[in-house]
Design a protein around this nucleic acid. Structure first.
Length: 464
RNA sequence: GGCGCCAUAGCCAAGCGGUAAGGCAGAGGUCUGCAAAACCUUUAUCCCCCGGUCCGAUUCCGGGUGGCGCCUCCA
């Protein structure tokens, strides 16, 4: 499998640290608000990455943090007159609701910054002892320049980073490039006791600490949005590599943005749509589909039109799956003509899928092969086929949907007897050419949310 | 100023040296008592423009034009 590594700016063959195992860390949300669909992109994409590695037989450990202490949390708590902890608790809950809706599997571990203060302090202390950090007035800063490779991820010459540095050149810092590891507490803020006095962790150190604690000194893949490359990931590398002396991350993966009117969607530009709001109107699944129908590094321009197109595309996949269920009900026991060739064709689609996904997780191409498989299936299932052939198609179709994380919300409940009886009555009426009655029954079922399709093999129904 | 990214049909979107995947919408057709749905087929003489390299470029190189991002909290 090839992965585009931000560190080398090239696609590289993925070689795990330990054969058969992959350690992945994804930067999680700062839990001070509902997530917007820009936040939802890495969540969807890297969940699929995880699934794909598992599909390919890897033993995956997937860790995603919650940043639950931060200026934004503190502000939110003050605004609402509740504690920071309550803010965090609330939005972690909302986050889990949204991710569940998106069909995202929970990470193996969801560490929280505030549960890892000890490790954070240990790391900061270690950096201080090694001369990479210095304390001023109860805060601790990292000496960026002392790390020779500072800038290797963002590929920025240090001078240019510096000239780009903003006004906040607090005089307490030795150098504008330095960043904070530990912040001295201001009155009224949540704080923890440390060797430097009461304070709280800076933003960057938490990820370094949680990775070290839960995954070890070196991990295979670290992922997140492109906007995290600098300074967040750059700083993580500096802290961790100075602390441990070994390589921090082998492969860095960064997803592109969701745009609105071609501008980056962000909370600060206030042009964002929350995942919840979009989901309330269109459902979660079209959002998921939208994330996967483009390559993860390409920008996606969000619009209502796009979401509606995704919905329609998803309908096609769902119809194919409905067709398969129906075909299974009507399946015969012995093989019909062309079933071997059909199965081989299906296998070839799976092959295409794997090839696409192996190429830097090209989900757009992967989805294309799913659609081609759907066409193969629809065509072949136009006639009655054997149970064996239908079951095979179902398992391979579901296999790809499972890897992508699509069609996770299919309703499988059976009809209740009342509905079944009505469908049967309608069929009797139709045979007797009593179309007035049959249409009346159809209308009745429509009102109950049951949609009928009359096919050569019988009546196919679905819920709308 | 530094460092990057993008430009493919009405829309979304892959491909990236050998002559344009897939989806939506549109058109035609099949099925059907009708309808709906579904399904099938079809839809880019060519990939922003100008040069260059090559037997051959949407794909590589150079130069434009137009968008965007990071360098500051941000997925």
């Amino acid at each position: 499998m090839k992965i585009y590594n931000t560190l080398t700016r090239s696609k590289e063959e993925f070689i795990p640290l330990e054969p058969g195992k992959v350690k992945i860390y994804a930067c999680g949300p700062t839990v001070y608000n509902f997530i917007h669909i820009g936040n939802a992109r890495p969540i969807c994409v890297f969940d699929t990455l995880r699934r794909y590695f598992e599909y390919r037989g890897y033993d995956v450990t997937f860790v995603q943090n919650f940043t639950d202490i931060d200026d934004k949390l503190i502000n939110k708590a003050n605004e609402e007159g509740i504690t920071v902890k309550e803010v965090a608790q609330r939005y972690i809950g909302e986050y889990l609701t949204d991710t569940q809706g998106l069909g995202i599997r929970p990470a193996d571990i969801h560490p929280r910054a505030t549960d890892n203060i000890d490790t954070i302090i240990e790391m900061v202390q270690s950096l201080e002892e090694k001369g990479y950090a210095y304390a001023v007035n109860g805060s601790v800063y990292f000496r960026s320049r002392k790390f020779k490779e500072y800038g290797k991820l963002s590929h920025q010459p240090l001078e240019d980073l510096e000239s780009g540095a903003r006004i906040d050149v607090s005089d307490v810092k030795e150098d504008a490039l330095d960043f904070v590891l530990w912040k001295a507490a201001k009155p009224g803020e949540p704080s923890w006791t440390s060797p430097w006095g009461e304070g709280r962790p800076g933003w960057h150190i938490e990820c370094s600490a949680m990775i070290r604690k839960h995954l070890g000194e070196t991990i295979d893949i670290h992922c997140g949005g492109q906007d995290l490359i600098f300074p967040h990931h750059e700083n993580e590398i500096a802290q961790s590599e100075c602390c441990t002396g070994v390589e921090y991350v082998r492969y860095w993966m960064h997803n592109g943005y969701i745009n609105v009117d071609n501008r980056k969607m962000s909370k600060s530009l206030n042009n964002f749509f929350t995942t919840r709001d979009v989901a309330n109107q269109y459902g979660y699944e079209p959002i998921k589909f939208m994330m996967l129908q483009a390559h993860y590094r390409s920008p996606i321009n969000y619009s209502i039109e796009v979401i509606e197109q995704c919905q329609a595309a998803l309908d096609r996949l769902n119809n194919c799956r409905d067709n398969l269920d129906f075909a299974l009900k009507n399946a015969c026991d012995t093989a019909t003509d062309g079933e071997d060739a059909f199965k081989q064709g299906i296998d070839a689609r799976v092959g295409q899928f794997v090839e696409a996904m192996d190429d830097d997780l090209n989900t757009a191409d992967g989805i294309a092969s799913l659609f081609e498989m759907a066409r193969d299936i629809n065509t072949f299932m136009a006639e009655t086929r054997s149970k064996d052939a239908v079951s095979y198609a179902i398992s391979r179709f579901d296999e790809l949907c499972g890897v992508l994380g699509l069609l996770y919300n299919r309703k499988t409940e059976d009809l209740d007897s009342e509905v079944e009886a009505l469908i049967e009555q309608r069929q009797v009426a139709r045979k007797a050419k009593d179309f007035a009655l049959s249409d009346k029954i159809r209308d009745q079922l429509t009102e109950m949310g049951i949609v009928l399709k009359d096919t050569p093999q019988g009546v196919q129904w679905s819920r709308k």
